[in-house]
Design a protein around this nucleic acid. Structure first.
Length: 608
DNA sequence: TTTAGGG
DNA sequence: CCCTAAA
Protein backbone atom coordinates (compact mmCIF):
# COMPACT_ATOMS: atom_id res chain seq x y z
CA UNK A 1 0.00 0.00 0.00
CA UNK A 2 2.74 2.30 0.37
CA UNK A 3 4.70 3.34 -2.44
CA UNK A 4 7.81 5.17 -2.16
CA UNK A 5 9.02 6.97 -5.05
CA UNK A 6 12.47 7.98 -4.72
CA UNK A 7 14.83 9.51 -7.00
CA UNK A 8 18.21 8.52 -6.16
CA UNK A 9 21.10 10.54 -6.88
CA UNK A 10 24.69 9.94 -6.93
CA UNK A 11 26.70 11.40 -4.24
CA UNK A 12 27.65 14.36 -6.12
CA UNK A 13 24.56 16.17 -5.63
CA UNK A 14 25.39 18.49 -8.25
CA UNK A 15 25.11 15.97 -10.86
CA UNK A 16 21.57 16.49 -10.66
CA UNK A 17 20.18 14.47 -13.35
CA UNK A 18 22.03 11.38 -12.74
CA UNK A 19 19.18 10.17 -10.86
CA UNK A 20 16.99 7.32 -11.29
CA UNK A 21 13.59 6.95 -10.12
CA UNK A 22 12.90 4.05 -8.03
CA UNK A 23 9.55 2.96 -7.14
CA UNK A 24 9.16 0.54 -4.45
CA UNK A 25 5.82 -0.63 -3.91
CA UNK A 26 5.17 -2.67 -1.02
CA UNK A 27 1.81 -3.79 -1.10
CA UNK A 28 -0.23 -5.21 1.44
CA UNK A 29 -3.04 -6.02 -0.70
CA UNK A 30 -5.16 -6.89 2.13
CA UNK A 31 -5.71 -3.41 3.14
CA UNK A 32 -9.13 -2.43 2.52
CA UNK A 33 -8.62 0.94 1.31
CA UNK A 34 -5.54 0.05 -0.43
CA UNK A 35 -4.47 3.55 -0.36
CA UNK A 36 -1.44 4.31 -2.20
CA UNK A 37 1.04 6.47 -0.63
CA UNK A 38 3.51 8.10 -2.76
CA UNK A 39 6.36 9.94 -1.55
CA UNK A 40 8.78 11.56 -3.63
CA UNK A 41 12.19 12.42 -2.64
CA UNK A 42 15.63 12.35 -3.81
CA UNK A 43 18.07 10.25 -2.01
CA UNK A 44 21.52 11.41 -1.99
CA UNK A 45 24.55 9.49 -1.28
CA UNK A 46 24.18 9.45 2.38
CA UNK A 47 20.77 8.26 2.22
CA UNK A 48 19.49 11.59 3.01
CA UNK A 49 16.29 12.51 1.48
CA UNK A 50 16.02 15.64 -0.34
CA UNK A 51 12.71 16.99 -1.08
CA UNK A 52 11.68 16.61 -4.55
CA UNK A 53 11.61 19.56 -6.74
CA UNK A 54 8.63 20.51 -8.67
CA UNK A 55 10.02 19.01 -11.74
CA UNK A 56 10.86 15.88 -10.05
CA UNK A 57 7.47 15.63 -8.67
CA UNK A 58 6.04 16.02 -12.02
CA UNK A 59 8.21 13.46 -13.49
CA UNK A 60 7.36 11.08 -10.85
CA UNK A 61 3.76 11.68 -11.32
CA UNK A 62 4.01 10.95 -14.91
CA UNK A 63 5.94 7.95 -14.22
CA UNK A 64 3.44 6.71 -11.86
CA UNK A 65 0.72 7.24 -14.22
CA UNK A 66 2.24 5.30 -16.89
CA UNK A 67 3.46 2.47 -14.98
CA UNK A 68 0.42 1.52 -13.32
CA UNK A 69 -2.94 2.75 -13.49
CA UNK A 70 -3.07 2.97 -9.88
CA UNK A 71 -6.25 4.26 -8.94
CA UNK A 72 -6.38 6.26 -5.94
CA UNK A 73 -9.04 4.83 -3.97
CA UNK A 74 -10.78 6.89 -1.72
CA UNK A 75 -13.44 5.40 0.06
CA UNK A 76 -13.23 3.99 3.29
CA UNK A 77 -12.02 4.39 6.60
CA UNK A 78 -8.45 3.82 6.69
CA UNK A 79 -7.76 7.20 7.75
CA UNK A 80 -5.82 6.46 10.75
CA UNK A 81 -3.44 4.42 8.93
CA UNK A 82 -2.56 6.92 6.48
CA UNK A 83 -2.25 9.70 8.78
CA UNK A 84 -0.16 7.86 11.07
CA UNK A 85 2.98 8.90 9.52
CA UNK A 86 2.09 12.41 9.71
CA UNK A 87 1.01 12.20 13.17
CA UNK A 88 4.08 10.59 14.17
CA UNK A 89 5.95 13.22 12.57
CA UNK A 90 4.08 15.83 14.26
CA UNK A 91 4.53 14.21 17.44
CA UNK A 92 8.11 14.53 17.19
CA UNK A 93 8.61 17.62 15.36
CA UNK A 94 5.84 19.76 16.36
CA UNK A 95 5.72 19.56 19.99
CA UNK A 96 3.57 22.42 20.58
CA UNK A 97 1.25 22.60 23.34
CA UNK A 98 -2.08 21.64 22.22
CA UNK A 99 -4.06 22.83 25.04
CA UNK A 100 -4.94 26.02 23.53
CA UNK A 101 -6.18 24.32 20.54
CA UNK A 102 -8.32 22.06 22.44
CA UNK A 103 -9.80 24.91 24.13
CA UNK A 104 -11.54 25.88 21.05
CA UNK A 105 -12.32 22.55 19.94
CA UNK A 106 -15.85 21.77 19.51
CA UNK A 107 -16.65 18.98 21.81
CA UNK A 108 -19.13 17.58 19.49
CA UNK A 109 -16.59 16.97 16.92
CA UNK A 110 -14.23 15.28 19.14
CA UNK A 111 -13.76 11.70 18.77
CA UNK A 112 -16.07 11.56 15.93
CA UNK A 113 -13.45 11.68 13.52
CA UNK A 114 -12.70 8.11 13.25
CA UNK A 115 -15.94 7.21 11.77
CA UNK A 116 -16.99 10.33 10.24
CA UNK A 117 -13.97 11.29 8.47
CA UNK A 118 -12.56 9.23 5.92
CA UNK A 119 -9.33 10.39 4.84
CA UNK A 120 -8.33 8.09 2.37
CA UNK A 121 -5.14 9.10 1.60
CA UNK A 122 -3.58 9.57 -1.51
CA UNK A 123 -0.45 11.23 -1.13
CA UNK A 124 0.37 12.47 -4.45
CA UNK A 125 3.86 12.49 -3.57
CA UNK A 126 4.24 16.03 -3.70
CA UNK A 127 2.60 16.52 -0.55
CA UNK A 128 5.04 15.84 2.03
CA UNK A 129 7.61 13.89 0.54
CA UNK A 130 10.39 13.76 2.80
CA UNK A 131 9.14 13.60 6.18
CA UNK A 132 6.97 10.80 5.67
CA UNK A 133 9.27 8.55 4.09
CA UNK A 134 12.02 9.34 6.27
CA UNK A 135 9.99 8.71 9.19
CA UNK A 136 8.63 5.53 8.16
CA UNK A 137 11.46 4.13 6.35
CA UNK A 138 13.61 4.39 9.26
CA UNK A 139 11.50 2.28 11.36
CA UNK A 140 10.37 0.06 8.68
CA UNK A 141 12.24 -0.50 5.63
CA UNK A 142 9.80 -0.26 2.94
CA UNK A 143 8.11 -3.34 2.09
CA UNK A 144 9.12 -5.27 4.97
CA UNK A 145 7.43 -7.72 7.05
CA UNK A 146 5.70 -5.29 9.20
CA UNK A 147 3.72 -3.68 6.55
CA UNK A 148 3.21 -6.61 4.44
CA UNK A 149 1.53 -8.71 6.96
CA UNK A 150 -2.00 -9.39 6.63
CA UNK A 151 -2.57 -9.66 10.21
CA UNK A 152 -1.52 -6.19 10.60
CA UNK A 153 -3.36 -3.99 8.31
CA UNK A 154 -2.01 -1.02 9.91
CA UNK A 155 1.39 0.05 9.00
CA UNK A 156 3.75 0.04 11.79
CA UNK A 157 4.33 3.58 11.46
CA UNK A 158 0.94 4.04 12.78
CA UNK A 159 1.86 2.77 16.11
CA UNK A 160 2.02 5.95 17.89
CA UNK A 161 -0.24 8.00 15.90
CA UNK A 162 -3.66 7.82 17.27
CA UNK A 163 -3.24 10.27 19.95
CA UNK A 164 -2.50 13.09 17.76
CA UNK A 165 -5.22 12.62 15.38
CA UNK A 166 -7.66 12.22 18.08
CA UNK A 167 -6.66 15.26 19.82
CA UNK A 168 -6.23 17.58 17.05
CA UNK A 169 -8.31 16.26 14.35
CA UNK A 170 -11.11 18.53 14.99
CA UNK A 171 -8.94 21.44 14.89
CA UNK A 172 -9.07 22.22 11.35
CA UNK A 173 -9.50 25.42 9.67
CA UNK A 174 -12.79 25.84 8.24
CA UNK A 175 -12.60 26.73 4.82
CA UNK A 176 -16.24 26.59 4.84
CA UNK A 177 -15.92 30.07 5.68
CA UNK A 178 -14.22 30.84 2.58
CA UNK A 179 -17.30 31.18 0.74
CA UNK A 180 -15.82 32.37 -2.35
CA UNK A 181 -14.46 30.03 -4.72
CA UNK A 182 -11.06 30.14 -5.93
CA UNK A 183 -11.29 29.89 -9.57
CA UNK A 184 -7.93 28.72 -10.40
CA UNK A 185 -9.16 27.35 -13.56
CA UNK A 186 -9.85 30.64 -14.96
CA UNK A 187 -6.41 31.77 -14.48
CA UNK A 188 -3.79 31.76 -17.05
CA UNK A 189 -0.58 30.03 -16.49
CA UNK A 190 0.94 33.29 -15.76
CA UNK A 191 -1.63 34.06 -13.21
CA UNK A 192 -1.26 30.70 -11.75
CA UNK A 193 2.35 31.37 -11.38
CA UNK A 194 1.59 34.51 -9.55
CA UNK A 195 -0.76 32.69 -7.30
CA UNK A 196 1.70 29.98 -6.82
CA UNK A 197 4.22 32.45 -5.75
CA UNK A 198 1.82 34.08 -3.46
CA UNK A 199 0.97 30.81 -1.96
CA UNK A 200 4.31 29.33 -1.54
CA UNK A 201 6.49 32.28 -1.56
CA UNK A 202 8.53 31.06 -4.36
CA UNK A 203 8.29 30.80 -8.01
CA UNK A 204 7.91 27.91 -10.22
CA UNK A 205 8.55 27.43 -13.80
CA UNK A 206 6.19 24.62 -14.20
CA UNK A 207 3.80 25.39 -16.92
CA UNK A 208 1.39 22.73 -16.31
CA UNK A 209 -1.81 24.34 -15.34
CA UNK A 210 -3.31 21.37 -13.76
CA UNK A 211 -0.33 20.85 -11.68
CA UNK A 212 -0.21 24.42 -10.64
CA UNK A 213 -3.77 24.44 -9.69
CA UNK A 214 -3.50 21.40 -7.66
CA UNK A 215 -0.50 22.62 -5.98
CA UNK A 216 -1.96 25.93 -5.19
CA UNK A 217 -5.09 24.50 -3.87
CA UNK A 218 -3.11 22.37 -1.61
CA UNK A 219 -1.03 25.21 -0.51
CA UNK A 220 -4.04 27.19 0.32
CA UNK A 221 -5.58 24.51 2.23
CA UNK A 222 -2.77 23.84 4.35
CA UNK A 223 -0.88 26.32 5.89
CA UNK A 224 1.88 25.26 7.87
CA UNK A 225 1.58 21.81 8.86
CA UNK A 226 1.08 20.01 5.89
CA UNK A 227 2.22 16.97 7.44
CA UNK A 228 -1.22 16.56 8.65
CA UNK A 229 -2.87 17.08 5.45
CA UNK A 230 -4.24 14.32 3.47
CA UNK A 231 -5.89 14.57 0.21
CA UNK A 232 -8.59 12.51 -1.03
CA UNK A 233 -9.14 12.04 -4.56
CA UNK A 234 -12.53 10.77 -4.98
CA UNK A 235 -12.62 10.43 -8.58
CA UNK A 236 -10.62 7.34 -8.50
CA UNK A 237 -8.06 8.56 -10.71
CA UNK A 238 -5.89 11.38 -10.89
CA UNK A 239 -5.77 12.68 -14.21
CA UNK A 240 -2.45 12.93 -15.56
CA UNK A 241 -0.72 14.73 -18.16
CA UNK A 242 -2.81 13.65 -20.97
CA UNK A 243 -5.44 15.50 -19.41
CA UNK A 244 -3.62 18.53 -18.80
CA UNK A 245 -4.76 20.01 -21.89
CA UNK A 246 -8.14 18.66 -21.73
CA UNK A 247 -8.72 20.21 -18.50
CA UNK A 248 -7.75 23.51 -19.59
CA UNK A 249 -9.97 23.35 -22.49
CA UNK A 250 -13.00 21.68 -21.33
CA UNK A 251 -13.45 22.74 -17.91
CA UNK A 252 -11.84 25.92 -18.10
CA UNK A 253 -14.64 27.61 -16.46
CA UNK A 254 -16.41 25.20 -14.45
CA UNK A 255 -13.59 23.56 -12.87
CA UNK A 256 -13.00 25.31 -9.73
CA UNK A 257 -11.47 24.65 -6.54
CA UNK A 258 -13.87 25.63 -4.04
CA UNK A 259 -13.63 25.49 -0.44
CA UNK A 260 -16.77 24.27 0.91
CA UNK A 261 -16.46 22.52 4.03
CA UNK A 262 -18.64 22.30 6.84
CA UNK A 263 -17.43 22.47 10.20
CA UNK A 264 -19.82 21.13 12.52
CA UNK A 265 -20.36 18.01 10.70
CA UNK A 266 -18.87 14.71 10.99
CA UNK A 267 -15.80 15.61 9.41
CA UNK A 268 -15.34 18.24 11.87
CA UNK A 269 -14.17 20.65 9.41
CA UNK A 270 -12.68 18.68 6.71
CA UNK A 271 -12.49 20.66 3.70
CA UNK A 272 -13.18 19.61 0.31
CA UNK A 273 -11.95 21.11 -2.70
CA UNK A 274 -13.99 20.31 -5.60
CA UNK A 275 -12.02 19.98 -8.63
CA UNK A 276 -14.80 20.43 -10.92
CA UNK A 277 -15.01 17.51 -13.07
CA UNK A 278 -14.43 14.62 -11.04
CA UNK A 279 -12.03 15.15 -8.42
CA UNK A 280 -12.56 16.07 -4.96
CA UNK A 281 -9.81 16.63 -2.69
CA UNK A 282 -10.43 16.43 0.90
CA UNK A 283 -8.17 18.12 3.09
CA UNK A 284 -7.73 17.34 6.57
CA UNK A 285 -6.19 20.46 7.53
CA UNK A 286 -5.60 22.07 10.73
CA UNK A 287 -4.14 25.07 12.03
CA UNK A 288 -0.57 25.24 11.54
CA UNK A 289 0.63 24.54 14.85
CA UNK A 290 -1.24 21.73 15.86
CA UNK A 291 0.46 19.32 17.70
CA UNK A 292 -0.21 16.84 20.07
CA UNK A 293 0.27 17.47 23.54
CA UNK A 294 3.73 16.93 24.24
CA UNK A 295 4.22 16.69 27.74
CA UNK A 296 6.56 13.97 28.12
CA UNK A 297 9.88 15.47 28.03
CA UNK A 298 11.18 13.13 25.56
CA UNK A 299 8.15 12.75 23.55
CA UNK A 300 9.60 10.35 21.22
CA UNK A 301 10.69 7.45 23.11
CA UNK A 302 7.51 5.73 23.41
CA UNK A 303 7.31 3.43 20.62
CA UNK A 304 8.87 5.40 18.00
CA UNK A 305 12.23 4.73 17.10
CA UNK A 306 11.59 6.44 14.00
CA UNK A 307 13.19 9.64 14.54
CA UNK A 308 16.29 10.41 16.30
CA UNK A 309 17.69 13.67 17.00
CA UNK A 310 20.98 14.36 15.54
CA UNK A 311 23.74 14.16 17.92
CA UNK A 312 25.62 17.15 18.78
CA UNK A 313 28.59 15.62 17.27
CA UNK A 314 26.84 15.17 14.07
CA UNK A 315 25.87 18.66 13.92
CA UNK A 316 29.28 19.81 14.66
CA UNK A 317 30.72 17.71 12.01
CA UNK A 318 28.44 18.97 9.51
CA UNK A 319 29.05 22.47 10.27
CA UNK A 320 32.72 22.00 10.25
CA UNK A 321 32.75 20.20 7.06
CA UNK A 322 31.73 23.04 5.03
CA UNK A 323 32.04 26.57 5.55
CA UNK A 324 32.33 27.23 1.96
CA UNK A 325 29.39 26.03 0.26
CA UNK A 326 26.67 23.74 1.03
CA UNK A 327 26.87 20.93 -1.30
CA UNK A 328 23.43 19.87 -0.59
CA UNK A 329 24.15 17.06 1.65
CA UNK A 330 25.85 17.24 4.82
CA UNK A 331 28.81 15.14 5.19
CA UNK A 332 27.12 13.47 7.89
CA UNK A 333 28.20 10.79 10.05
CA UNK A 334 25.39 9.00 8.53
CA UNK A 335 27.56 8.02 5.76
CA UNK A 336 29.31 5.59 7.83
CA UNK A 337 26.27 3.55 8.20
CA UNK A 338 27.04 2.13 4.98
CA UNK A 339 24.22 0.33 3.51
CA UNK A 340 22.93 1.31 0.21
CA UNK A 341 21.57 4.67 0.08
CA UNK A 342 18.20 3.43 -0.53
CA UNK A 343 17.93 1.12 2.28
CA UNK A 344 19.19 3.21 4.96
CA UNK A 345 17.40 6.24 5.58
CA UNK A 346 18.61 8.76 7.87
CA UNK A 347 16.39 10.68 10.04
CA UNK A 348 15.33 13.82 8.61
CA UNK A 349 17.13 15.76 11.08
CA UNK A 350 20.35 14.87 9.73
CA UNK A 351 19.62 16.67 6.72
CA UNK A 352 19.14 19.95 8.01
CA UNK A 353 21.05 20.44 10.98
CA UNK A 354 23.47 21.99 9.07
CA UNK A 355 23.92 25.29 10.19
CA UNK A 356 26.26 26.10 7.64
CA UNK A 357 28.48 28.80 8.31
CA UNK A 358 27.86 30.19 5.09
CA UNK A 359 27.53 33.68 4.92
CA UNK A 360 25.63 35.00 2.20
CA UNK A 361 22.29 34.58 0.94
CA UNK A 362 20.82 35.46 -2.28
CA UNK A 363 18.54 38.25 -1.85
CA UNK A 364 16.03 39.00 -4.39
CA UNK A 365 14.61 41.95 -2.75
CA UNK A 366 14.32 44.74 -5.06
CA UNK A 367 15.08 42.40 -7.79
CA UNK A 368 18.67 43.13 -7.62
CA UNK A 369 19.58 39.68 -6.65
CA UNK A 370 22.47 40.57 -4.57
CA UNK A 371 24.37 38.41 -2.27
CA UNK A 372 24.03 39.66 1.12
CA UNK A 373 26.06 38.76 4.03
CA UNK A 374 24.23 37.33 6.86
CA UNK A 375 24.40 39.02 10.06
CA UNK A 376 23.86 37.51 13.31
CA UNK A 377 20.45 38.01 14.31
CA UNK A 378 19.17 40.28 16.74
CA UNK A 379 16.23 39.18 18.53
CA UNK A 380 13.49 41.47 17.92
CA UNK A 381 10.15 41.42 19.20
CA UNK A 382 8.40 38.73 20.77
CA UNK A 383 8.48 35.61 18.98
CA UNK A 384 9.28 33.30 21.57
CA UNK A 385 6.32 31.92 23.14
CA UNK A 386 6.36 28.41 22.06
CA UNK A 387 9.93 28.12 21.72
CA UNK A 388 10.64 26.47 24.86
CA UNK A 389 8.36 23.70 24.15
CA UNK A 390 9.65 23.35 20.71
CA UNK A 391 13.14 23.35 21.73
CA UNK A 392 12.54 20.88 24.31
CA UNK A 393 11.98 18.36 21.68
CA UNK A 394 14.14 19.43 18.99
CA UNK A 395 16.98 21.11 20.39
CA UNK A 396 19.08 20.92 17.46
CA UNK A 397 16.99 22.70 15.12
CA UNK A 398 15.93 20.00 12.95
CA UNK A 399 13.81 22.41 11.25
CA UNK A 400 16.46 22.72 8.75
CA UNK A 401 14.93 20.13 6.77
CA UNK A 402 12.55 22.52 5.68
CA UNK A 403 15.13 24.48 4.11
CA UNK A 404 16.33 21.63 2.22
CA UNK A 405 13.32 21.79 0.35
CA UNK A 406 14.20 23.26 -2.70
CA UNK A 407 12.89 26.42 -3.34
CA UNK A 408 14.31 25.91 -6.53
CA UNK A 409 12.16 27.33 -8.98
CA UNK A 410 11.61 24.33 -10.79
CA UNK A 411 14.47 22.21 -10.36
CA UNK A 412 16.00 22.83 -13.65
CA UNK A 413 18.69 24.63 -12.16
CA UNK A 414 21.46 22.30 -11.46
CA UNK A 415 22.60 24.53 -8.85
CA UNK A 416 19.52 24.53 -6.95
CA UNK A 417 20.99 22.40 -4.34
CA UNK A 418 23.60 24.84 -3.78
CA UNK A 419 21.21 27.57 -3.62
CA UNK A 420 19.38 25.88 -1.01
CA UNK A 421 22.40 25.43 0.93
CA UNK A 422 23.09 29.01 0.78
CA UNK A 423 19.81 29.86 2.00
CA UNK A 424 20.15 27.65 4.82
CA UNK A 425 23.19 29.20 5.91
CA UNK A 426 21.51 32.27 6.52
CA UNK A 427 21.34 32.89 10.12
CA UNK A 428 24.33 31.13 11.13
CA UNK A 429 27.24 33.22 11.75
CA UNK A 430 30.37 32.08 10.23
CA UNK A 431 31.71 31.35 13.56
CA UNK A 432 29.50 28.46 13.95
CA UNK A 433 28.45 29.45 17.33
CA UNK A 434 25.04 28.48 16.57
CA UNK A 435 26.05 24.95 16.81
CA UNK A 436 25.63 25.00 20.42
CA UNK A 437 22.52 23.59 21.61
CA UNK A 438 19.72 25.75 22.09
CA UNK A 439 19.37 27.04 25.31
CA UNK A 440 21.93 29.51 24.89
CA UNK A 441 20.90 32.86 24.31
CA UNK A 442 17.76 34.42 23.26
CA UNK A 443 18.80 34.99 19.81
CA UNK A 444 19.80 31.50 19.32
CA UNK A 445 16.83 30.02 20.76
CA UNK A 446 14.77 31.88 18.50
CA UNK A 447 16.56 30.57 15.63
CA UNK A 448 16.01 27.10 16.54
CA UNK A 449 12.49 27.61 16.99
CA UNK A 450 12.24 29.15 13.69
CA UNK A 451 13.68 26.24 12.16
CA UNK A 452 11.23 24.07 13.76
CA UNK A 453 8.64 26.17 12.35
CA UNK A 454 10.05 25.75 9.00
CA UNK A 455 9.64 22.15 9.29
CA UNK A 456 6.05 22.46 9.58
CA UNK A 457 5.75 24.53 6.63
CA UNK A 458 7.61 22.28 4.54
CA UNK A 459 5.85 19.28 5.32
CA UNK A 460 2.90 20.10 3.41
CA UNK A 461 3.75 19.80 0.01
CA UNK A 462 7.15 20.11 0.18
CA UNK A 463 8.08 23.51 0.19
CA UNK A 464 5.61 26.02 0.71
CA UNK A 465 6.90 28.91 2.49
CA UNK A 466 10.31 27.67 2.11
CA UNK A 467 11.37 30.73 0.43
CA UNK A 468 9.85 32.87 2.95
CA UNK A 469 11.42 30.99 5.68
CA UNK A 470 14.72 31.44 4.32
CA UNK A 471 14.24 34.97 3.94
CA UNK A 472 13.09 35.49 7.36
CA UNK A 473 15.28 35.78 10.20
CA UNK A 474 16.87 38.68 11.33
CA UNK A 475 18.29 40.35 8.49
CA UNK A 476 17.79 43.62 9.83
CA UNK A 477 19.92 45.34 7.45
CA UNK A 478 18.70 47.10 4.49
CA UNK A 479 19.33 45.97 1.07
CA UNK A 480 19.91 48.02 -1.90
CA UNK A 481 17.24 47.64 -4.42
CA UNK A 482 17.69 47.77 -8.06
CA UNK A 483 16.07 51.08 -8.16
CA UNK A 484 18.60 52.39 -5.85
CA UNK A 485 16.38 52.57 -2.90
CA UNK A 486 17.13 50.92 0.31
CA UNK A 487 14.75 48.43 1.49
CA UNK A 488 14.47 46.83 4.77
CA UNK A 489 15.71 43.44 4.84
CA UNK A 490 13.24 42.24 7.14
CA UNK A 491 10.27 42.36 5.12
CA UNK A 492 9.05 39.07 4.29
CA UNK A 493 6.10 39.05 2.07
CA UNK A 494 3.11 37.34 3.41
CA UNK A 495 2.37 34.15 1.71
CA UNK A 496 -1.08 33.14 0.89
CA UNK A 497 -0.97 30.37 3.33
CA UNK A 498 -0.08 32.75 6.04
CA UNK A 499 -2.92 34.94 5.09
CA UNK A 500 -5.22 32.02 5.24
CA UNK A 501 -3.99 31.16 8.63
CA UNK A 502 -4.51 34.65 9.77
CA UNK A 503 -8.00 34.70 8.48
CA UNK A 504 -8.74 31.46 10.12
CA UNK A 505 -7.34 32.73 13.30
CA UNK A 506 -9.44 35.80 13.23
CA UNK A 507 -12.47 33.76 12.58
CA UNK A 508 -11.79 31.72 15.59
CA UNK A 509 -10.56 34.15 18.03
CA UNK A 510 -11.78 37.33 16.63
CA UNK A 511 -9.85 40.25 15.41
CA UNK A 512 -7.93 41.77 18.16
CA UNK A 513 -6.82 38.65 19.83
CA UNK A 514 -3.62 38.81 17.98
CA UNK A 515 -1.51 37.24 20.55
CA UNK A 516 -3.80 34.28 20.69
CA UNK A 517 -3.82 33.90 17.02
CA UNK A 518 -0.16 34.27 16.94
CA UNK A 519 0.31 31.59 19.45
CA UNK A 520 -1.92 29.11 17.88
CA UNK A 521 -1.98 29.66 14.22
CA UNK A 522 1.46 31.02 13.93
CA UNK A 523 3.10 29.00 16.55
CA UNK A 524 5.45 27.69 14.04
CA UNK A 525 6.21 30.96 12.51
CA UNK A 526 8.56 32.67 14.73
CA UNK A 527 8.47 35.72 12.68
CA UNK A 528 5.13 37.38 12.37
CA UNK A 529 4.49 38.88 15.63
CA UNK A 530 1.08 39.63 16.87
CA UNK A 531 1.62 43.11 15.70
CA UNK A 532 2.39 41.84 12.30
CA UNK A 533 -0.80 39.93 12.31
CA UNK A 534 -2.68 42.94 13.28
CA UNK A 535 -1.10 44.99 10.59
CA UNK A 536 -1.74 42.39 8.05
CA UNK A 537 -5.31 42.15 9.06
CA UNK A 538 -5.65 45.83 8.73
CA UNK A 539 -4.34 45.58 5.26
CA UNK A 540 -6.55 42.73 4.44
CA UNK A 541 -9.52 44.64 5.57
CA UNK A 542 -8.66 47.48 3.43
CA UNK A 543 -8.00 45.25 0.53
CA UNK A 544 -11.13 43.30 0.98
CA UNK A 545 -13.34 46.28 0.87
CA UNK A 546 -11.47 47.88 -1.83
CA UNK A 547 -11.24 45.07 -4.20
CA UNK A 548 -14.31 43.11 -3.54
CA UNK A 549 -16.66 45.46 -5.18
CA UNK A 550 -14.81 44.86 -8.32
CA UNK A 551 -14.90 41.22 -7.56
CA UNK A 552 -12.87 40.67 -10.51
CA UNK A 553 -9.44 39.63 -10.93
CA UNK A 554 -8.53 37.51 -8.15
CA UNK A 555 -5.08 38.61 -8.40
CA UNK A 556 -4.78 40.81 -11.25
CA UNK A 557 -3.16 43.87 -10.10
CA UNK A 558 0.24 42.78 -10.96
CA UNK A 559 1.49 46.17 -10.57
CA UNK A 560 1.16 46.02 -6.93
CA UNK A 561 4.02 43.72 -6.68
CA UNK A 562 2.72 42.51 -3.42
CA UNK A 563 1.12 39.20 -3.56
CA UNK A 564 -2.36 39.20 -4.80
CA UNK A 565 -4.84 37.86 -2.45
CA UNK A 566 -7.45 35.63 -3.86
CA UNK A 567 -10.88 37.07 -3.84
CA UNK A 568 -12.30 34.33 -1.73
CA UNK A 569 -9.94 35.17 0.98
CA UNK A 570 -10.82 38.76 0.80
CA UNK A 571 -14.41 37.87 0.87
CA UNK A 572 -13.92 36.02 3.98
CA UNK A 573 -12.07 38.86 5.46
CA UNK A 574 -14.88 41.09 4.70
CA UNK A 575 -17.36 38.81 6.27
CA UNK A 576 -15.39 38.48 9.35
CA UNK A 577 -14.97 42.15 9.55
CA UNK A 578 -18.61 42.68 9.19
CA UNK A 579 -19.59 40.26 11.73
CA UNK A 580 -17.12 41.63 14.07
CA UNK A 581 -18.14 45.10 13.43
CA UNK A 582 -14.80 46.08 12.39
CA UNK A 583 -15.99 47.67 9.36
CA UNK A 584 -15.62 51.29 9.31
CA UNK A 585 -18.73 53.17 8.35
CA UNK A 586 -17.48 54.35 5.10
CA UNK A 587 -16.40 50.99 4.01
CA UNK A 588 -19.68 49.60 4.94
CA UNK A 589 -21.35 51.55 2.31
CA UNK A 590 -19.50 49.61 -0.22
CA UNK A 591 -20.17 46.32 1.17
CA UNK A 592 -23.87 46.19 0.96
CA UNK A 593 -24.19 45.45 -2.59
CA UNK A 594 -25.14 41.99 -1.89
CA UNK A 595 -22.75 39.44 -2.94
CA UNK A 596 -22.39 37.14 -0.22
CA UNK A 597 -24.93 34.54 -0.53
CA UNK A 598 -24.12 33.25 2.79
CA UNK A 599 -24.97 34.65 5.99
CA UNK A 600 -22.20 35.98 7.83
CA UNK A 601 -23.38 34.59 11.00
CA UNK A 602 -22.69 31.07 10.26
CA UNK A 603 -19.17 31.78 9.73
CA UNK A 604 -18.34 31.30 13.24
CA UNK A 605 -20.95 28.91 14.12
CA UNK A 606 -18.55 26.42 15.33
CA UNK A 607 -16.67 28.73 17.44
CA UNK A 608 -17.00 31.21 20.09
C1' DT B 1 2.92 42.48 27.72
C1' DT B 2 -0.49 43.07 24.56
C1' DT B 3 -3.48 46.34 21.69
C1' DA B 4 -4.52 49.92 18.85
C1' DG B 5 -3.03 53.38 15.77
C1' DG B 6 -0.09 56.30 13.37
C1' DG B 7 3.98 56.75 10.61
C1' DC C 1 7.10 47.01 8.98
C1' DC C 2 8.30 50.03 12.92
C1' DC C 3 7.25 52.87 16.85
C1' DT C 4 4.58 54.50 20.56
C1' DA C 5 0.95 55.17 23.62
C1' DA C 6 -2.38 53.17 26.53
C1' DA C 7 -4.18 49.53 29.03
Amino acid sequence: METVVAVEEGEGIKQESASEIVINRSDSSNLIADPVFYKLARVVGDGIYIPATDDEVMKAEDLIDHKSSLHFVLDNSQTAVLNSNDDTFVEEFMPIDCEDLLEFEDPSTRGERSDAVVDTTVDLGKLNPRFEEVTRSESTPVDQSGDGKQADPVPRSAESEPSMSTICSSWKPDFSKLKGEICLDNLSVKELHATFKATFGRETSVKDKQWLKRRISMGLSNSCDVSLTTFNIESNEIEKKDQLEDCSNKDENRNKYSFTGHEGGNDGGDNKISLGQSQTIQMDDRFSGISKSVQSGEGDNQGNKRVRKPTRRYIEEVSESDSREYSGRPVSSARSSGSGPRTRVRPVHNIQPVRKPLVTRHDSLGGSGVEIPYVSRIRRGRPRENFMSLMKFQPYGMGMTARLVKKAHDGHDPQSDNDIGNEELKATPATGWSLQPLIKEPGENEEYSEQSADLNNISDEGQMDSYADVDSDENILTVPTAKGGMRRKHHRPWTLSEVVKLVEGVSRYGAGRWSEIKRIAFATCSHRTSVDLKDKWRNLLRASFAQLPAEKGVQNSKKHSSIPIPAPILLRVRELAEMQSQVSPDLKAVKFDGHSGRNVNDIRSGFL
